[in-house]
Design a binder for these strands. Sequence first.
DNA 1: TGACCATATCCGCTTTAGCGGATATGGTTA
DNA 2: TAACCATATCCGCTAAAGCGGATATGGTCA
Lengths: 114, 114
Amino acid sequence: MQQEAKIFKALADDTRLRILALLLDVELCVCEIMAALELPQSTISRHLAYLRNSGWVLDRRQGVWMYYRLNNNEHLLVNEIIPLLTNHLAKKSAHTVALKKLRNFQKEQGHQAC
Amino acid sequence: MQQEAKIFKALADDTRLRILALLLDVELCVCEIMAALELPQSTISRHLAYLRNSGWVLDRRQGVWMYYRLNNNEHLLVNEIIPLLTNHLAKKSAHTVALKKLRNFQKEQGHQAC
DNA sequence: TGACCATATCCGCTTTAGCGGATATGGTTA
DNA sequence: TAACCATATCCGCTAAAGCGGATATGGTCA
């Protein structure tokens, strides 16, 4: 069951849950997540690497930017948990605050990439 | 989301998943879990305390024995995860081996309590 | 009451994991 | 090529968590 423990371990951290809550909606790049959560770049990057290694997200390079999105194809268990996260995390105030900061950041950027 | 992180943290350990896999079926006492998993008593007891504190199980004293069972009433999220655990853990060989050891132990005990 | 048993908690230890500033990497633009 | 930018990784540190033998607790039975 170490496989399953690994999947749940990724969810056993508040920062990673906040990142996942954002990625439930859309693909985002690192600087957008930084802006939404107001955490240092190394912290965000480290947690994203963790989520990638545990099968939760996929990344994609576009020029200088790295985009991260949910990985729906790796584990059945992950796929089954995703709807639960959607239900339980979306209503959290920590999430709505993060979403607002994300929108502000995107507005400041004037819709140019990242 | 610390509440949710706490719930998932309880699942982020192989030993606790093995304990929960057993409790998905039935209520068990500590010595039965020890026999099924072949782990020292302090280890089992510590993890059971962890599962109780994170809302996953309830305990009940019967004479000298402590019985543990799933807690279906604490968190909606827990309730929604339980069926996923049933699906994904029951087929694991680690679980079927543990179940066999549990049966053997119960047979040796000749159906007297624990 | 005292001996005994199941379980919980304590203890010292080791391992794991998180943090964030500093540095490395690797793609882009001039 | 060089300067620059976004991101990844390194590093030293601290806090959290797991381990299992030893001890404490609290219920039971004689």
